[in-house]
């Protein structure tokens, strides 16, 4: 079924004052097991070497090549053309700063946000003893933490989130999930109060409106929905301590999905 594919690609070079946003059409012969990575590389090698598009691992593990594919954010290298109609429309990810054509600056945003939520294990690094055994950890907990460490910072979840599109200071599902990762980790010595300070606001966990597009587009299948729910419940319950009776708070905390190993 060797189709002729038509790719409508967004073109714009913000560094060129003469450039205006437009769509450009390329045709490519389809092969077996063809991915958008192969198609776009072909276009760049053979038709238009100025096409800006980011690829790195071409194996769906680095997160470079996220773009909007027929209206949906996804990884180009991870998308097989056989799963798409013969006419394919490609846009750069919204939300992030456009560098040109299909290339956007996710790196700066993730770094800035990482600093904002203090995305590191708050422990005493100086206390590391090279001669001592490592801290023991339950394997299930390790797996649970790794599950959240699998995020490749592709930015699809941000681009798909209507809240983020409206309110550009929204930290997004990925940041809240990232905080959940540290919240789970016994090596991080932060208290609930500390976590509340970084995401307990309308830019953080309370900004999310439960649109769940993040969950639905995440190419790595990170459990964003569950983490958003858990963190919101934990943070909200933390805020009403003293307002609501304690037993009620405890019951609500334990309802629904929760961290099997959550800190007390």
């Amino acid at each position: 079924m060797n189709r002729m594919l038509t790719l409508n690609i967004f073109r714009y070079n913000p560094l060129d004052p003469d450039s205006t946003p437009r769509m450009q059409t390329f045709t490519v012969q389809e092969y077996d097991s063809m991915t958008l990575f192969i198609a776009l590389t072909q276009i760049r090698d053979e038709k238009d070497p100025t096409l800006k598009v980011d690829f790195c691992c071409r194996a769906g593990i680095c997160g470079s090549c996220a773009m909007v594919i027929n209206g949906r954010p996804g990884l180009a290298c991870h998308t097989q053309t056989k799963d798409l109609p013969a006419e394919i429309t490609l846009h750069p990810l919204p939300f992030f700063q456009l560098l040109g054509d299909l290339s956007v600056d996710t790196g700066s945003w993730f770094r800035k946000t990482g600093l904002q939520i203090e995305a590191w294990c708050h422990s005493d690094d100086k206390a590391f003893d090279p001669t001592a055994e490592e801290m023991r950890m339950d394997n299930d907990l390790a797996n649970e933490i790794f599950e959240l460490d699998r995020c490749i910072e592709c930015g699809c979840c941000m681009a798909a989130c209507g809240t983020a599109r409206m309110r550009t200071d929204f930290l997004g599902a990925v940041s809240i999930m990232r905080v959940a990762r540290f919240y789970l980790d016994p090596r991080d010595k932060r208290s609930e109060d500390d976590y509340y300070e970084v995401i307990g606001n309308d830019q953080g966990v309370f900004g999310c409106m439960g649109l769940l597009a993040c969950e639905d587009v995440c190419p790595k299948g990170i459990p964003l929905q569950d983490q958003l729910g858990i963190m919101r419940r934990m943070m909200a319950m933390h805020s009403v301590k003293g307002v609501l009776p304690r037993p009620l708070i405890e019951t609500i905390k334990k309802k629904g999905c929760c961290h099997a190993h959550a800190q007390s």
Binding site: C208, M209, G210, L212, E215, P223, Q225, D226, L228, G229, I230, R232, R233, A236, I252, K255, G256, C257, C258
Partner: peptide, 8 residues
Amino acid sequence: VKYGFVGR
């Protein structure tokens, strides 16, 4: 969904 009563 928002309060995590309904998980994935």
